[in-house]
Design a protein around this nucleic acid. Structure first.
Lengths: 228, 228
DNA sequence: CCGGCGACTTGAACAATGTGCAAGTCCTTT
DNA sequence: AAAGGACTTGCACATTGTTCAAGTCGCCGG
């Protein structure tokens, strides 16, 4: 009977769990080791270093994405679906956004996704470099939106972990931020209104609004300058 | 004559220098202390902790931005200008993107900018929450674009610092990434083409392309549903 | 069946870094 | 000149990534 040994795959999946629970700065090798019931340094036999582990975790997560069948749906439906799926992936795994800003990421699943994304915009009528720019515009839009969610998630974790200390600091920061906002008419209006709560609750609405605007704009580009 | 003493402002400005040069992970209190000709811990008298320092540095940088005069230019020119300025700020200070994904940021200069941004989209004809969503869409688009630049900058720094070790790892990673890309037709095409070089050289083009598409889309929204 | 080899794990150790603390040093105020 | 506050310093500790030499385990050739 073969010895019960660690797997690279097992390590990566556990790392994703930890990243989801504790964020990018919450992932450390000792905690990972503990969760794997092994010494922290055992991981180094399977993975080069922490950066490499994050790279692998990233691509693992990318593999969650299902790609739309381009023969079955029109490009706009496909583009919307891919963008929403991506956005949801980022909100499920907020650390991804940080990883994206810190390292150049690549991997099998991401390549698969990128290729499919290009196919969508080629199907829409963009040729060559234009398809690149369209795909990249939508991707970066999604990424930017997710950044807000990531920051919020990081804050929420901090509040959940440190019972009381962080709570005060948070209140303090909130108070300072509000005090600043009160001095700017448009920001103030958004604090005063009873609508304030609904704003905060609806980053997803803002995301879809902007996404449709962006896709509208792209569609317009094609109309103005049809398939070359 | 008063003693020559550290200033909060001086500390923040030095921190920005260090952040620009070494990135977010390159900023550490001892290095900061050395650059200020003082003990690392002297900083703690002026600033609560590192996170707080980054927050202050962020707002310092936000202060670089000039805001367009809304009585002098139409909204679209103003929106384009603000977006481009923002993008340039992010590329000048790539660590900002990481900071944005990791912490919830606020400050005087950012509030000023946000307020002005809302004014632009209200001038465009968006009311209330719609102006919020429009402004947020453009902002997040810019942020997302900057993430790519930030990752590239981080990589470039790493290559510049570690003379030879990182060089090999980079070549290795490049080779792996290319090997993957070669298995996907559209990605492969973009490696094969002589155009490959021009792609890589033109993230700014992609940025402006998407920005105009997004603004086109927003404009269309107003046209379809005029000022309420 | 056994000896060794390669796969994998472990624990100790080191360097880098954020930060608290007690003791200093310097200027201003009375 | 004495006192008190503003600021600085050095030391110390905890946390974390990573290396390394020494283990342990199971298989395989003899």
């Amino acid at each position: 009977m073969p010895r019960d040994t660690l797997t690279r795959d097992q390590i990566v999946r556990t790392a994703v769990e930890l990243l989801d629970a504790e964020g990018l700065e919450g992932l450390n090798m000792r905690a990972l080791g503990k969760r794997l019931d092994s010494a922290a340094t055992a991981v180094y036999w399977h993975v080069k270093n922490k950066d490499n582990l994050v790279l692998l975790a990233t691509d693992q997560v990318w593999g969650e994405l299902k790609l739309p069948d381009l023969d079955a749906v029109d490009w706009r439906t496909a583009a919307t679906g891919m963008a929403i799926d991506l956005y949801e992936m980022f909100t499920r795994h907020p650390w991804l956004v940080q990883a994206f800003a810190a390292h150049v990421l690549y991997g099998e699943s991401k390549a698969r996704h990128d290729d499919h994304s290009l196919a969508v915009y080629e199907a829409a009528g963009f040729a060559g470099a234009q398809a690149d720019q369209a795909a990249s515009a939508v991707f970066t839009y999604v990424l930017g939106n997710a950044a807000g969610a990531a920051a919020t998630a990081s804050l929420a974790r901090k509040l959940a972990r440190d019972d009381t200390t962080a709570e005060e600091q948070f209140q303090d920061a909130m108070a300072k931020a509000q005090e600043i906002a009160m001095r700017y008419p448009r920001l103030r209006a958004r604090l005063d209104t009873s609508a304030a709560a609904s704003y905060a609750a609806a980053p997803d609405k803002a995301f879809e609004f902007g996404l449709q605007a962006l896709l509208d704009g792209l569609e317009q580009q094609i109309a103005g300058q049809p398939a070359g």
